[in-house]
Design a protein around this nucleic acid. Structure first.
Lengths: 205, 205, 205, 205
DNA sequence: AATGAATGAGGATTCATTCAT
DNA sequence: CATGAATGAATCCTCATTCAT
């Protein structure tokens, strides 16, 4: 009873990993099921016991991707540290995640939005509920109460996410920044000034 | 002689427009040559008089896209206004461009990086030379001399570009911001604080 | 020993019923083993303990189908009634059988001939020996001795079978006849005139 | 203008012939598009310029088949001969058609009804309107006015069609009849007695 | 220059069958 | 005996690309 479910779960993970690897390499459409199956160490037909159609890899990846990303944010949020420090750590850990799982980052940033899927709206909602909301809270705290409306915080959270994702995508960013630490520092400071600057302006003025 | 070239140029524009329209709608791979040809009011075979293979649409689009984007930056740069105002206007005009040509924005942001092409490096270089450099100069000026290294300015310019593009991509950004003006204001302020804040910190400290 | 055989027999019947049901619905090729197994309340693999390959369902169905059809003919033949009446009853009971087991009729009429099987000749022979011969005898008796050669009687028997089967197949027959009783009356009279008419012609001439 | 349409028509005929040939040999499902294309002397993809999906071969075949069959009936109907003779000739020509185009006959009798197609109802209607009605008129005339209702004539017409088709299908019919002439004679007499017998009964009674 | 019919490589998907449990 | 996960052969269909007109 336990075993069956476990095996299925294991298979799903195998497929997820393989899909990430191949799709990040070649893009969703050029990644063939045969390749993904081979990368997962499975037969071509076996994939179809776990998904109905190739597109179903998208929600599979999205779900795990959002989980990983959210986990990092929650971790940062639960720290006992000043709000600005928490946000800084959130950005750092997000970048570290994307650097480690750069393939995942590429797929999250590049394909998931583009592949129209019947679950697209669901994915968007889950992304907002599980990820953006948590990050927006950090933004809000770092900015100080009432500096940003709920909507503004969410937009800024999305901007932060996009800037973190840029690292995995952009050849130019890698070249111009010089290294991930430099990018990280630049990004942290840029964001913190953008977030908390308003408060300072108010205080100073 | 002149006429022939003119016709060719006209055809290229037809194809470019059609390609943008169809690709933004369905993504590069699901956009078929037949559809693009039809959208351009041309026969399927005619397309192949202007490109060698489907992928060649990518540099065609990129070139025009980068031109449009660069033109807006140059325009802002040539204004007689304080640096911060120039940067603000650059962002505003960039957003306006993406809002007007939202299809182009979607293709620029979504497909161009993902479709590996023999000219990919060329495109990247042109993007840096014609667009990022100009925007980086505005960033640099707005920040005040010696606040950012060349590389840092370029990275920030790319961050700005990405944040502007987000508008066309993201359902959530549209929903959470409430409207393009609100998004514009938020973005301008966020960027300007991020860019000029460092100077103020230095001055205040 | 006995029990094992009984279970096997029971399984075979389950599979036969399920196969009829699914194949009549979707045709042989679109009927999947998984569906047939499910319809039989068995696991997919279990089917393969009773057949070697999917095509083996055909002789399984044929055998049972021919048995049912033959039984009705034998029954009619054993009645104590005038030859014409016996033939009439044979037709009636045949139609009733096909009406009750309409799925079986559809498979008998539609698929069995079409699916080439190594046992196809065997099935044909059994059909002739167990079914056609019996029905041909009734035809022969109804016609009066020496009216039809053996071959002629067999051909007419097959014509009768085909006309009875039409009922299960044909939307138009159902629509145009108006109901099974009307079809039955029409068919009986048509056949009886066809069969016994020759005798009358001879007598009258 | 003319040429384009002509070529298309020619292609359709090529495909029709090839489809008949291959499908009659192996059945609809085992006949592959590749084989049909090869038999038509065309490339695999070319087929799909004339049909949308494999199933669309069914209405293509049905249409031509019904035309051929109907033509023979109309021909018989237009003869200047006594009604019974016309019906006799109709049967003879129908059998001759099926004997000549035995592959077509097999497909008409075996596959067309079984392959569910979105046009199935249309095919049925056309079959009734173009074929059954014409044959039913001959039946009606041969029987004498008011012997059969419209519906009865239609049913008998369908019975006749099925009995003619049997010739192409049945190994046993071929074996037991001894030859097509014998089958023809047997069938003609059987039908004519079945059709006109009722009248004689009335007259004699 | 413009066209679209012809083509076949390529890929998603299905499903009969096997086999370890 | 019963099962269903695993498998890959087999096949439909799409679509970029060519080429004769």
């Amino acid at each position: 009873m336990r075993r069956a479910s476990d095996t299925a779960q294991k298979r799903r993970r195998q497929i997820f990993e393989a899909a990430i690897a191949v799709i990040s390499e070649k893009g969703f459409h050029k990644a063939t099921i045969r390749e993904i199956a081979a990368a997962a160490g499975l037969g071509k037909g076996t994939i179809y016991q776990y998904i109905d159609k190739k597109e179903d890899l998208i929600p599979l990846i999205a779900e795990v991707g959002i989980s990983l990303m959210s986990a990092k944010i929650s971790e940062a949020a639960s720290l006992d540290a000043p709000p600005e420090e928490k946000l800084r750590i959130a950005i750092k850990s997000q970048l570290a995640l994307f650097d480690e799982h750069s393939r995942l980052a590429e797929v999250m940033g590049g394909e998931i939005e583009r592949i129209k899927h019947e679950d697209s709206e669901l994915i968007t909602r889950v992304f907002e509920e599980r990820y953006l909301n948590a990050l927006a809270s950090l933004v809000s705290e770092a900015a100080g109460r009432e500096r940003f409306s709920k909507g503004e915080s969410l937009v800024i959270a999305e901007l932060i996410a996009v800037m973190c994702l840029l690292w995995s995508h952009s050849v130019l960013a890698k070249k111009n920044a010089g290294g991930i630490e430099a990018y990280e520092t630049l990004l942290e400071e840029f964001v913190l000034r953008g977030v908390s600057g308003r408060r300072k302006e108010a205080e100073n003025g």
